[in-house]
Simulated scan of single mutants.
Amino acid sequence: MFLRSLLALCFFNTTALAVPNVVNSIKPINSIVSSITQGVLTPQLLLNKAESAHHFHLKPSQLSLIKNADLIISIHPKFESGLTKVLSNIDSNKQIIVNADIANHHSWLDISLMQKLSIRVTQKLIKIDPSNAVIYQQNLKHTQQKLEQLKRQIRQALSTYRTANIATFSNSLTHFLQSNGLKKPIIVNQKHGDRSSVYKIRKAKKSMKMQQTQCLLSTIEISEKRIRTLVEGLDIHTARIDIIGLNVEYPQLMSNITQQVIQCLK
């Protein structure tokens, strides 16, 4: 009888201590989710090396993470194309697609959208793991406060440049610019993987010259050679920006982007 009771107690404790396995596709989302799960679990980052979020091949270790996950949070199948097939075989109840209704998939660059995501993640976690609901809710409150403060700080820092003329190599930074009240930029390519034809380059250079564009922004995937070709003959500053921030947490990533934009506009 004693042995049965002891075994039952051990089983209960093991069950009580079990927490969900949460996997996030990219670092900015992983950072946000980590702030919600703090004190309960550490989510796993799927793309944890300097590789393209658009084009990658899953390794056995990554497939294992997905297989054992209770919750998988990804941007969108069209963004992480390497996940399209494997996620199509995962129960939708085990997934959060961040940009299910958003065409431009770089939504983590809009802090307000990340505040909304934090609520979605918290609600999902409480359904999966109700025993830790109080902690998730407390973490959500703290996360929302930090994100609100960050949003205000960044908008204030950029307020001086709201009338500045900006160009972007692709639409990757549109969420950041729009959410912070900056002018609609000249966009050379809708996607950074698009081919820059002679026609596109000439059209963009003409527009930048007429508008007296002060700054051309691009992501680090765009080579310096492509940027030099685009701005040759123009008096314009440029900035190649890391929008993933593999080695920093979300608040620092957004602060780094802000400082690079400001330096480009000075």
Rank of each mutant, 00 (worst) to 15 (best):
H175L: 01
R152K: 11
T143W: 04
K151C: 03
I119G: 02
S107D: 10
C215D: 04
R155W: 06
L216A: 05
N180C: 09
Y161M: 00
K124R: 13
M210E: 13
K200N: 01
Q190M: 14
Y161S: 05
K191F: 12
K200Y: 13
Q123A: 15
Q156H: 15
R120A: 12
K203R: 14
Q212S: 02
N171W: 01
Q137H: 06
K209E: 08
D129H: 01
S118W: 05
L147N: 05
M210I: 04
D194C: 05
Q212N: 11
K200I: 09
R155T: 13
K183F: 07
Q153E: 14
K124M: 05
L173G: 03
G193H: 10
S179N: 11
R202D: 13
V198C: 07
Q211H: 00
V134P: 07
L109C: 00
S118N: 07
T163C: 09
R155S: 12
N180E: 09
L150A: 04
A164T: 14
R202K: 12
S196P: 15
T174E: 09
I187A: 02
L113G: 00
N165Q: 15
N171G: 10
T174F: 06
N189S: 08
V121C: 12
K205G: 09
K184C: 08
Q138M: 08
T213L: 06
Q149V: 04
S107V: 08
Y161E: 05
A164E: 13
L109H: 08
Q190G: 01
K146I: 14
K146P: 07
I187R: 03
R195C: 10
W108T: 00
D129K: 04
S118Y: 01
D110E: 10
T213P: 06
Q145M: 05
I135G: 03
P185R: 00
Q144K: 05
F169C: 02
S170C: 15
I201S: 01
L140T: 12
A133R: 13
K200Q: 12
T163K: 13
E148M: 04
N139Q: 12
Q144H: 13
I126Q: 02
M114L: 09
Q211S: 14
Q123S: 10
S118M: 00
Q137T: 13
T163G: 09
H192N: 06
C215H: 03
V198S: 13
D129L: 05
D194F: 10
M114W: 09
N165F: 11
Q153M: 05
K151Q: 07
R152F: 11
H175F: 08
T122A: 02
I187E: 11
N165D: 11
L173Y: 10
V121S: 01
I166M: 03
K203D: 12
Q123M: 11
I135K: 04
L182P: 02
K141C: 12
E148A: 11
L177C: 00
I111L: 01
S159C: 12
F169P: 05
I119K: 13
Q214M: 10
I201E: 03
L182V: 01
F176S: 04
L173P: 06
N171V: 03
A133S: 14
Q144S: 09
Q138D: 13
C215I: 07
V121G: 02
T168C: 10
M114C: 11
Q211M: 14
G193N: 06
C215Q: 02
T213Y: 00
L125C: 04
G193F: 01
I154F: 00
I186Y: 04
